[in-house]
Amino acid sequence: MNNQTIDKLRSMRLGAMARLHLQHVEQNRLEGMTCDEYLALLTDHQWEDRENNKTERLLKQASFRQNANLADINYSAERNLDRNMFARLGTLDFVSRKENIIICGASGTGKSYLCQALGHQACLSGIKTLYTITARLFKKLKLSKVDGTYLKELEKLTKMELLILDDFGLQAFDNQDRETLMDIIDDRHGKKSTMISSQIPVSAWYEIIGGEGTIADAILDRIVNSSHRIDLKGESLRKGILKQE
C-alpha cells in the first residue's frame, strides 16, 4: 500500500512528498502524529521544495555576475548611499509600483553590486529578473534582427518583472541601438520595472543617446520621471580591496 502511494505521489510530480513519506515509513516514524499533522508535514515539505526550486531557476535565469546580497551593502558615509532609502528599495515595493531605479557613479563605486543585490532579493521573492550588460544586450538584439528573432527576444525582456541594464552608456549609440532602447523602454513603461547603472551622470544621457532629439526625449521621459535615483560617491571600492591585500 505504501509503495503504491509513493508511486502515485511521484506520478503526480510530488517527489519531495514521496521521499519524505518513504523516510517516515522506513524509519517507522508515523506514530505520534495525527492524520492532519502528518498531511500538513508532507504538504509543507513539498511546498518548500517547489519554492526552493523556483528560486534556483530564477537565480539561474537572472545571470548575475556576483553573488550579491543586501546584508553585505557598505553604507560608509563617503559613498553617499542612504541606508533608509536603500532599505525601502530592498522591500521591492518599487517593482509592484512599476517604478525604475537609476544608479550612477564612477567606476568601482559598487553600482553593479547594488543592482545585483536588489536583483538577488527580487529572485528570492519570486520576481522574474534579468541582469545584463547593456552593450552585450544590444549586440545580441542586433543579431536577432538579422535572423528574424528580434520580436521574440523583445517579448522575453518584456516578461521580466525587473530588468537590470548595467554599464549603460559606455559605448556610443547608433541608430539601431536607439531604436532598440526605445522599443525596450516603451514596452516596459508603466508595466514593469527597469534598473539602470551607469558611470555617466543622467545629465549627459541626452547627448550619449544622440540621434533625433525627439527619440532621446521620449526615452529619457520614460526612464527618468518614474525613477529612484542613487548617485554614488567616493573612491573605488576595488582600490580599497587592493590596499588591504
Rank of each mutant, 00 (worst) to 15 (best):
N2K: 11
Q4I: 15
L9Q: 08
R10S: 08
S11T: 15
R13D: 14
M17R: 02
R19G: 03
R19Y: 03
R19D: 04
R19P: 00
Q23K: 13
E26D: 07
R29Y: 13
T34E: 14
T34C: 12
C35V: 15
E37V: 02
E37M: 05
Y38G: 04
Y38T: 04
A40C: 06
L41S: 03
D44V: 14
Q46R: 06
W47Y: 14
R50G: 04
N53C: 15
N53T: 15
R57W: 12
L58T: 02
Q66F: 10
N67V: 13
A68D: 09
A68M: 12
L70K: 09
N74F: 04
N74V: 02
Y75G: 13
Y75K: 11
Y75Q: 11
S76A: 06
N80R: 08
N84S: 10
F86N: 10
A87P: 11
S96N: 15
S96D: 12
S96G: 14
E99N: 10
I102H: 00
I102Q: 01
T109D: 10
S112T: 02
S112L: 01
S112R: 00
A117E: 00
G119S: 03
C123V: 11
I127V: 08
I127W: 08
T129H: 00
L130Q: 02
L137H: 03
K139S: 06
L141V: 06
K142H: 05
K142M: 07
L143H: 04
S144V: 04
V146K: 15
D147L: 15
L151W: 06
K156H: 11
L157Q: 07
E161K: 12
E161Y: 08
L163W: 12
L165I: 09
D166H: 00
D167H: 01
L170Y: 12
L170I: 14
Q171A: 12
Q171T: 09
D177V: 08
R178P: 03
R178Q: 05
R178H: 04
R178W: 02
E179Q: 06
E179N: 06
M182G: 07
I185T: 02
D186W: 14
H189T: 05
K191R: 05
K192W: 13
S193H: 08
M195C: 04
M195R: 03
S197L: 04
S198G: 08
S198E: 04
Y206E: 11
I208F: 11
G210Q: 00
G211F: 00
E212S: 15
I215V: 05
L220R: 01
R222I: 09
I223N: 01
N225I: 14
N225A: 13
N225P: 10
I230R: 01
L232H: 14
K233N: 13
